[in-house]
């Protein structure tokens, strides 16, 4: 079991091409922890903005009558991948991991696999 800080560190160190990561509470839009990011890439802004993404998707599923859960959301930009992984169980509901990957260095399949493993180990 890993705490928030260790999990965020592991995201950046063990996932190829990872440049920034945040653990976000989407009931409030606030980040529980952030790592990486620069002055130009403010993770607090990303946390608030992606909270709206997650909420919009959950609302859409509700309207469509889908009784499923979101595992992850992938957003592909020109040179980056943004991966959102919702946490399940152990008091982790209402949280998501937000991972920024450099498109040229990242292996998407491996990144998703690693992120799933880190999420399973994470104890908030």
């Amino acid at each position: 079991m890993a705490n928030t800080e260790t999990a965020l560190k592991e995201c950046l160190s063990s996932i190829d091409g990872a440049t920034a990561v945040a653990l976000v509470d989407y009931t409030s839009g606030m980040a529980l922890g952030t790592l990486g990011g620069t002055k130009d890439f403010n993770l607090e802004v990303a946390a608030a903005g992606n909270t709206d993404v997650v909420r919009a998707k959950l609302r859409t599923m509700e309207l469509l009558g889908l009784k499923e859960e979101i595992e992850d959301i992938l957003i592909t930009l020109n040179s980056q991948y943004h991966l959102i992984r919702l946490l399940k169980g152990r008091g982790g509901s209402g949280l998501f991991l937000y991972l920024v990957l450099d498109g040229s260095r990242a292996n998407l399949a491996m990144a998703r696999h690693q992120l799933r493993r880190i999420e399973n180990d994470l104890e908030v």
Partner: peptide, 10 residues
């Protein structure tokens, strides 16, 4: 109550 506090702050 359900507001996005992160956005509210920003």
């Amino acid at each position: 109550d359900r507001v996005n506090v992160g956005r509210l702050h920003l």
